[in-house]
Design a protein around this nucleic acid. Structure first.
Ligand SMILES: [Mn+2]
Ligand SMILES: [Mn+2]
Ligand SMILES: [Zn+2]
Ligand SMILES: [Zn+2]
Lengths: 146, 146
DNA sequence: ATTGCGATTGTTAATCAATCGCAATATACG
DNA sequence: CGTATATTGCGATTGATTAACAATCGCAAT
């Protein structure tokens, strides 16, 4: 049994909820790649796998996945929320190309250290550092020059 | 004539657009405080000032304000976009209390330096660093302990 | 002052994502 | 099994944003 499967199952059990076939299928799709996704792209992905799961079911599952730490909301360039699976990954942040949507990840502990200090100074207890760099990737920059 | 007024007027003129009474009224409301706002709170604010400006007009103006650098989207705790006026302010980031919505600002050039380096390393040209710290403020932390 | 013309506005209708209500199934557990 | 919940899919509904449109406005050229 995969790590995330075990973790999510026990999260559900603690709430009297069930690890159903649908939920398992959705999680498998989510953990099959590290691509960021939104409800619609996930739904499409499931269709390609031959699964007929209603978007309502996805919408209903997402809050549970967030609360259990399976996924988190990502910084997106679209207007609606996007997510990425989180469980099993070190904290990291993103560079997003505003032209092509390409995403690069990076990790910088120095930044977290600094932010810890800021929180302390201001009397806040940090929950999450949301950091996204909106930028133009090298490929798109070359395009733009033309 | 205020700084932002002049700047926005010339932005509009360059596009063959007009600095109308409605646009001026909306901008005055926006620059009257440094509070973050969304379309609805701005609309309420205008009502309180005795102005009857349609939300459609606000929705139509916002992209122009963003493009001209008058405002920018802020990191919000709600599901819909919120904004803050930008013109005339040094770049800064936010701590947001997820319980009461209180916002604190901070500036950390060290972080920007680090991010410049990250962008260089990854070949991205930065447009904007979006950094928001979701946290619990000291007041709310005390409440929670009870 | 008048005219012409594109920009602007408010109203109303259309979109679109997200949520809800409910009847049909599936699951847990004694 | 048999009952009590939880879950699902469907379709309807909501709420925020956008689009269409017809009436005004702003402004520069008569
Ligand atoms: Mn990532
Ligand atoms: Mn601010
Ligand atoms: Zn790109
Ligand atoms: Zn608070």
């Amino acid at each position: 049994m995969r790590d995330w499967e075990e973790r999510f199952t026990s999260f559900l059990k603690a709430r009297g909820l069930t690890f159903t076939r649908e939920r398992k299928t959705i999680l498998e799709a989510i953990f099959a790649t590290h691509d960021h996704f939104d409800v619609d792209s996930l739904h499409e992905d499931l269709k390609k796998r031959g699964e007929r799961i209603s978007v309502a079911t996805i919408y209903r599952l997402i809050p549970l996945l967030v609360e259990s730490g399976m996924i988190r909301q990502a910084v997106s360039r679209a207007g609606h929320p996007t997510y990425e699976h989180l469980f099993g990954h070190l904290p990291h942040h993103h560079l997003i190309c505003v032209r092509c949507g390409r995403v690069a990840e990076f990790r910088e502990e120095r930044i977290e250290k600094i932010l810890d200090g800021v929180c302390e100074r201001e009397g806040f207890s940090p929950i999450e550092y949301r950091l996204g760099v909106r930028a133009v990737c090298s490929t798109c920059r070359r395009e733009e020059k033309k």
